[in-house]
Design a protein around this nucleic acid. Structure first.
Lengths: 135, 135
DNA sequence: TTTTGCATTGCAAATCATTTGCAAAGAAGC
DNA sequence: GCTTCTTTGCAAATGATTTGCAATGCAAAA
């Protein structure tokens, strides 16, 4: 939540651009890609560069402060970490992302990995769909 | 299975390079990326080019003859289609891919999408893990 | 505070995976 | 064997992301 804390805890310096980027990520609750983030940040701080957005995303991802998702056929999109784990449903028409979670699926995944002799380190479940017409 | 049929059915010409690529995809049951495919094909037909591998993958994917997977942080990997639907478990140490399927997960996905007001067009479920030490 | 040292930035150029323009070579139907 | 339309190899283009480098800016120490 408090990005200053996040940054400090990660041993990172608090810079104007990082503040700006993190503020955007905290306020907007969608899943912007680097370019979108860059454009939004530019409105607040016109001197910010796309490289910095990418670099910031990379560092913050390593520190676990944000999550990177690469949905089918598109650039990476980001969201701030910290919330509960969830998976994603992507509206293939609009690109909108809906979050959901299912403990049952989660458990089944564990069982499957177990059966196959593996230990799950991470996973990704994405549903791609279109809004059902309410008729 | 019979790639000549696949190609002909798709209205595509049967060329030496397509034959070669499809033969490799049919024989090897792993999930090679374009470069690996190119290297294997080169051993059989040294004149083949990487562009052709990419082009062939693209056409065949459109025709539904192969499937493209983009696992985390890596180039696209391919497998011939036709088998039953399945998901993937990727060994993060070796890159090896294990296929699995779960009707229960499949059904839960449907339910979730339904609840969210969406119709699933496709989905992807990937487990990333490491082999459990048998101790 | 001022100083100092290392982190961070902006810019341009590099990289990686993949696609594409184009002229030459090759299928397929006649 | 022609003719036509497809496919190929090559090189150059593309899109997303990363990186080298010199300049700038934090932050800890003085």
């Amino acid at each position: 939540m408090d990005y200053e804390t996040v940054l400090r805890a990660a041993g990172l310096r608090i810079t104007r651009q990082r503040r700006t980027i993190l503020a955007i990520l905290a306020e907007d609750d969608d899943h912007p890609d680097a370019l979108a983030l860059y454009r939004r940040a530019s409105r607040i701080d016109p001197s910010i560069s796309l490289s910095t957005v990418y670099r910031t995303m990379k560092v913050l991802e390593e520190k676990g402060a944000i999550q990177r998702h690469t949905f089918e056929g598109g650039p990476a999109r980001f969201e701030q970490a910290g919330g509960r784990h969830h998976d994603h449903l992507i509206d293939i028409e609009t690109g909108e992302v809906v979050e959901f979670r299912s403990d049952r699926i989660e458990r089944l995944q564990e069982m499957i990995a177990e059966e196959l002799g593996y230990e799950i380190v991470s996973h990704r479940l994405e549903l791609y769909g279109r809004r059902r017409k309410a008729d």
